[in-house]
Design a protein around this nucleic acid. Structure first.
Length: 880
DNA sequence: GACCTGCTGCGGAATG
């Protein structure tokens, strides 16, 4: 059992070591010694330092001189769990802890348990667990799924969760919350420490870590500590300016026009990380840099999540060794192993948020006393405003918040099976345990009962399938997994990460290169070329989820499009942008960026008006296409999608109308074939209903919510164990996976509408994809703003990118068959009921009520740009 | 007149 240690004892111990710690380190040691949990926010070099703290803790508790000296020192049992969100970071931490400098007691052993751990190492660990186990959330959950889990984990005194800010806001973090609740059940005095980067809500992050404490039992428990460990650190945020902002693109994203400035910036510095927002952008930029400077071949490199591990490892080694001049990367290098030689970071395009910008800045100058430097490279003119806004917000310490997901039942269902495997559970006790987590603190009995029923027999529709009778109570009332096959299947499917469809890319003779999206390869035929991993490759054939390729001569080829996430502009940053515009409206241009973009803002002011925190600008314009409305709420693209659909839906209430919708991070466009008196109608259309659920149902009605939830459901079905992502030996293509998720969705909708996973899909859609809470806030703010209605003579600088957005959508090069399939589904949906709108895959909505003209135009357009490659069916009959 | 996007993260164990 842990015993509180006095502060004096800590000081004595420090004196014997001769350490001169930072004040915040001392604070953490004291808190740990008193048995307190806590969160440390530090802006630099926490990993290595904390390794030393472990030494402190261990020395205080375990290394106390033994009363009787044993003949042979025995390693203590598993006492410390160190959780990191990444395997690479886990390996790095393990190395740091094993370093003699860390000064752990000689009897202590350090183990690493992750996907990188070999089966030999696994079995060695199973025989004897190390004293400190460095692991990932998934591997920890696997430990919990072992029959002897409670015994092996019974001696854990301390859990450290590294990069907690990365886990806090997602289902992986919920998985950690549940695991911690489990450990605390056995040891109520468990000490938990989280390490976090800059976050807008540190208190909440700490509360989520330590969970909800039962007042009766924990009255005497010490208060958790929040330690702010900021070390004086200079962060330089500057911007590469275009020669003339006027001539600078108004809606672009690639930013290659800035190539000369970027080349020069790389020349100036030592090692530079070049962050891009997308993988294809990284590919293009890497290629462009090599074309500009062929002599950099071999000293610049490319790094993103679709490249093979071997390739990425090579790049990371090069960065550590300082042999690389520059690496073009995506957020794959946001986290993890620190690369000391990096002294400058370039950010191509918007960083989308202050926290991300600071995180990336911190990748450079990663040593005490050295400044971090991030240089923004705007890809269109309005990003100059964003750059100025980001710097001001960062200086003011305005950083985004992150919240734990609320009651994700899919994760809970998975957890129930895990615990049933890990020694079994008694429902009432586990209910209490689960409710000590922040995520499930409000879990009511009916949701709990539903989850129990679901793991027991899959609900009414699946009751007759033995595969879904996963857990059952034994004669003592302990719920267990009775079937060894189901047990194994559960273990290989533990986790909450649901990946996109992907196909491996590999040389015909040689190693793996990485992976591309299944749909991208499906469009290609042998002989087609594409740019990947910085090389031009020619497709030879596809076999068993692998695309075999060979080198192709450089030239024009497609660049893979990966379907990644869509990062919306954070509210914190959007608000900062509005403040910059407000200053500009008062003729204050106090930064180089704002001076540079001034001509454009002046045009906006001359032709229209500048949106500010108090002025809502609504522009209308008529052209051949119809009547346009441009609106600039600056609420991020997610909110704009919901808002645009809602406005269109409301506007179409009294009279039928058809709208096309375009959105970006700054605003939205509604295009209608008929004139709408927006200036008069907008105030009424922006009303927030008093009843909160009224807004929800309006938003749901305005979108094709069923189709959107259905897509959302895939992830939920996977996590809840309805479908399986991987199966040793029988690799299933993700298409099949998608199809079966859709099947379950349909079956539940029809025969089991009370299935709570359906409700979860809808609520995740509303809260995460559409961000209804923010939508309501945006509406409220807009209704308080002064409406500035402008009739444009031509599209304003702010309007133009929105028009491009819509234009690009029409020129989509996705496969024709997919498109047609969706349109058919669309039509069916419309014919079937009162559906007034549909949102399709790219989150741009085509509104039709009830006409179908829009769809028809789209089909014609598409035909023109993307003629079907294959010969018509009739000619492809097999030869006799 | 202006343009051509969409990230990251994880992972069994029995058998011979």
């Amino acid at each position: 059992m842990t015993r509180p240690v006095s502060r004096a004892a800590v000081e004595r111990w420090l004196a014997t070591r001769g350490w001169k710690p930072f004040a915040f380190q001392r604070e953490v040691w004291h808190a740990m010694a008193e048995g307190r949990s806590g969160l440390l926010h530090a802006n630099t070099g926490t990993g290595k330092t904390l390794a030393a703290w472990l030494g402190a803790l261990q020395a205080l508790r375990v290394e106390a001189p033994p009363a009787r000296v044993r003949a042979k020192p025995v390693a203590p049992p598993l006492s410390v769990l160190w959780i990191t969100p990444m395997r690479a970071l886990a390996a790095d931490t393990t190395r740091a802890l094993r370093d003699p400098m860390t000064d752990l007691a000689p009897t202590w052993t350090i183990g690493l348990r992750s996907g990188d751990t070999t089966s030999a190492e696994r079995s060695a660990q199973d025989r004897r667990l190390p004293t400190v186990l460095v692991t990932t959330p998934e591997s920890l959950t696997l430990q919990l799924a072992r029959a002897d889990a409670l015994d092996t984990l019974a001696h854990v005194q301390l859990v450290v969760v590294d990069e907690w800010h990365e886990l806090l806001g997602n289902k992986r973090g919920v998985q950690v919350q549940l695991a911690l609740a489990r450990l605390r059940q056995r040891r109520p005095d468990l000490i938990c420490w989280a390490l976090s980067a800059t976050l807008g809500n540190l208190e909440e992050a700490l509360a989520t870590l330590v969970g909800v404490r039962a007042p009766a039992r924990d009255a005497s428990a010490p208060e958790p500590a929040l330690v702010r460990g900021e070390v004086a650190k200079t962060i330089v945020i500057d911007t590469l300016l275009p020669e003339r902002a006027e001539r600078f693109s108004w809606g672009g994203h690639m930013g290659l026009r800035m190539l000369p400035q970027v080349v020069q910036a790389i020349e100036e510095g030592g090692t530079t990380l070049v962050f891009t927002n997308t993988r294809s952008q990284a590919e293009r930029w890497y290629q462009a840099l090599l074309e500009a400077r062929p002599d950099w071949a071999g000293v610049i490199a490319l790094h993103h999540g679709s490249l093979a591990k071997e390739v990425r490892d090579w790049v990371e080694q090069g960065l550590k060794a300082g042999t690389l001049r520059a690496v073009v990367c995506t957020s794959s290098l946001d986290l993890g192993v620190d690369f000391l030689p990096v002294d400058r970071v370039l950010q191509i395009g918007s960083a989308k948020g202050i926290a991300r910008l600071l995180q990336r800045a911190g990748r450079s100058g990663h040593a005490p006393g050295r400044p971090s430097r991030v240089t923004l490279v705007p890809t269109h003119s309005l990003e100059l405003v964003e750059a100025a806004a980001a710097r001001h917000a960062a200086q003011a310490g305005q950083v985004e918040r992150r919240h734990s997901p609320h009651e994700p039942l899919d994760v809970l269902v998975q957890h129930l099976v895990t615990i049933a495997l890990g020694g079994g559970f008694v429902p009432d006790a586990l209910y209490e345990e689960v409710r000590t987590t922040t995520a499930y603190r409000d879990l009511d009995a009916s949701n709990w009962q539903w989850c129990l029923d679901f793991v027991r027999q899959g609900g009414p529709t699946l009751a007759s399938y033995p595969d879904f009778q996963r857990v059952a109570p034994d004669e003592l009332g302990v719920w267990r997994v009775p079937d060894a096959r189901l047990a194994r299947r559960h273990r290989v499917n533990i986790g909450t990460i649901v990946s996109d469809a992907s196909i491996n890319v590999q040389y015909q003779t040689g190693g793996p290169l990485g992976s591309v999206e299944e749909s991208f390869v499906a469009r290609m035929k042998p002989g087609d070329c594409f740019l990947f991993g910085g090389r031009m490759l020619e497709l030879i054939r596809i076999h068993q989820m692998t695309a075999y390729v060979k080198k192709a001569p450089p030239g024009r080829g497609a660049v893979p499009r990966w379907n990644g996430g869509r990062m919306p502009l954070s509210n914190t940053l959007a608000d900062a942008v509005l403040r910059e515009l407000d200053a500009a409206d008062h003729d204050v241009f106090d930064s180089p960026e704002m001076q540079c973009v001034r001509p454009l803002l002046d045009i906006q002011r001359r032709w229209s008006a500048l949106p500010t925190p108090t002025a809502l600008v609504a522009e209308t314009w008529k052209d051949r296409e119809g009547w346009h409305l441009f609106l600039y709420p600056f609420a991020g693209r997610q909110v704009h999608l919901g808002l645009a659909s809602l406005l269109a839906w409301r506007a179409a209430q009294p009279e039928q109308a058809t709208f096309s919708i375009a959105i970006n991070d700054y605003g939205l466009e509604l295009l209608s074939a008929r004139e709408i008196a927006w200036a008069e109608r907008l105030p009424a259309l922006l009303v927030v209903p008093d009843e909160p659920n009224a807004l929800l149902s309006e938003v749901l009605a305005s979108l094709n919510a069923t189709e959107l939830s259905r897509r959302r459901f895939r992830e939920i079905a996977r996590i809840a164990g309805l479908i399986f992502q991987s199966h040793p030996g029988e690799r299933q293509s993700n298409r099949q996976l998608q199809a079966s998720a859709g099947l379950y969705f349909d079956v539940f909708q029809k025969y089991d509408p009370g299935n709570r996973l359906l409700a979860q899909a809808e609520s995740e859609l509303l809260s995460q994809e559409l961000d209804v809470a923010q939508l309501a806030a945006a509406l409220r703010r807009m209704s308080g703003q002064r409406l500035v209605a402008i009739t444009l003579a031509r599209p304003s600088p702010l309007a133009f990118p929105l028009m491009v957005e819509r234009f690009r959508e029409k020129l989509s090069n996705e496969s024709l068959s997919d498109r047609i399939a969706r349109m058919v589904a669309d039509l069916e949906g419309r014919a079937g009921g009162d559906a007034v709108g549909t949102a399709h895959e790219d989150a741009k909505t085509v509104f039709a009520r009830p006409a179908m003209a829009e769809t028809a135009t789209e089909a014609i357009q598409l035909d023109r740009v993307d003629p079907p490659r294959r010969a018509p069916r009739s000619r492809r009959r097999p030869r006799a």
